[in-house]
Design a protein around this nucleic acid. Structure first.
Lengths: 226, 226
DNA sequence: TCTTTTTGATTGATCCGTCAGTCAATCATT
DNA sequence: AATGATTGACTGACGGATCAATCAAAAAGA
């Protein structure tokens, strides 16, 4: 073992182990000893680097946000049109990397903390503001008026989080793509209702699930335009 | 004190105390002693009636579902048209009685349990099935085709739970009516998109919140009908 | 009516295990 | 030797569960 520079390695390992421990033992059942065991270090080291169980878990929560943020930013950077950016915002939340069972358990635990923990509430507010701001920006680019963009951004955030919750609780793990495309289709429908013009939904880069009975394309509403 | 017939009284008191304790101490911080104290009984009695902490908390979770179910059923019974029944399904979830902070904390705690606890997962499935079945039934009455009703029911459930989650986590407690009407407006928009006919949104029986800037009425989309 | 018995309701001390946090010692590299 | 990394025994506190004992209302019997 290298004598120096171990700290970031250990911190990462402990944070990852904390998330897995939350999944395996339940948030209430998590112990520092279990986390340390999973990280392959001793009990004392966890305290050495994080000071307390609370701080370790808080770091794990912050890690969740960083992961999601990086996922979304990466996708946003690859998107060249407003439509693609909107898709990136939705699909970033349903990326496979974000839907691993252990991450889902940790997110659920985080949600539960929000009403009681100011730190968790703060993170939640940041997450909401960031998503809302991104959505508003894209919707403005798509031609919505300011107030409509504000309202619709709020609604889209609700859709995303609602669909995420259903995915998390229903345990239908093959359904991630379907979840994302359901949200996307609804969003385009709502946008068309507000702009009065039909749009081409950007192609999805993923392959449709094998058993997906619904036509992949959007069901264009039969209105002639505004 | 009456010698007999105390059991249901105590059980109710302990369940109510458990929900309040979850809110006050956090789900992980709840102790049987604290619950008993809040219920005004001794520590031992809680074990006498429920056998274990786990069973007590499970009973509290089941109580949440009964409360919500009764709220919805009451509203459904008072509704005479399909439109009113749809409104009842939405607004039952946003009734003031269901949005007390202690209930919200308990629901969040319940959600967190779902992936790990088979009992919680079972309750969640029942809740989902009941809501989905009710929604499908109403949507069929509104003229949607079977498959469209199925899809839209799923989407409405997502909207409801997403909006509930945002309400629960944002702590904007005056916004309950706004939350419900946002969901309702979106639903009617989606229905119109699928049926191709504009509908009169049923009047709301509640009074608009004082500070509610948005027009109370539905924003009817400007389409002439099918 | 008065006494005795029964039985459910209720208590709280106690046991046992667990866990968070501390700390002094050890290890390994420079 | 010096220094950061690491260990794990130890402690104090706490919580869940158990259980023997107490209480009081009701039922049975005299």
């Amino acid at each position: 073992m290298a004598r120096t520079g171990m700290e970031p390695v250990r911190r990462r390992a402990l944070i990852g182990a904390a998330i897995e421990a939350i999944h395996a033992e339940g948030y209430c059942g998590v112990t520092v000893a279990e986390i340390a065991r999973r990280a392959g270090v001793s009990y004392g080291l966890a305290h050495h680097y994080f000071g307390s169980k609370e701080q370790l878990l808080a770091a794990a929560m912050r890690h969740l946000f960083r992961l999601l943020g990086e996922e979304v930013v990466t996708r946003l950077r690859q998107a060249e049109t407003a439509e693609a950016r909107l898709s990136a915002l939705v699909r970033g939340n349903f990326a496979r990397s974000q839907l691993q069972p252990s991450l889902i358990s940790a997110w659920l635990a985080f949600y539960m903390q929000v009403p009681a923990s100011p730190a968790a509430a703060h993170l939640w507010r940041i997450y909401q503001r960031r998503l809302g701001s991104n959505l508003r920006s894209v919707l403005l680019q798509l031609g919505l008026e300011r107030e409509a963009a504000q309202d619709l951004a709020q609604l889209i955030a609700v859709l995303i989080d609602g669909q995420w919750l259903h995915y998390a609780l229903s345990g239908e793990h093959p359904g991630a793509e379907a979840a994302a495309s359901t949200v996307e289709r609804s969003i385009w429908m709502l946008i068309e209702n507000r702009t009065g013009q039909a749009r081409a939904v950007p192609d999805q880069e993923w392959q449709p699930a094998a058993d997906q009975g619904r036509p992949r394309g959007h069901r264009v509403v039969g209105r002639g335009g505004g």
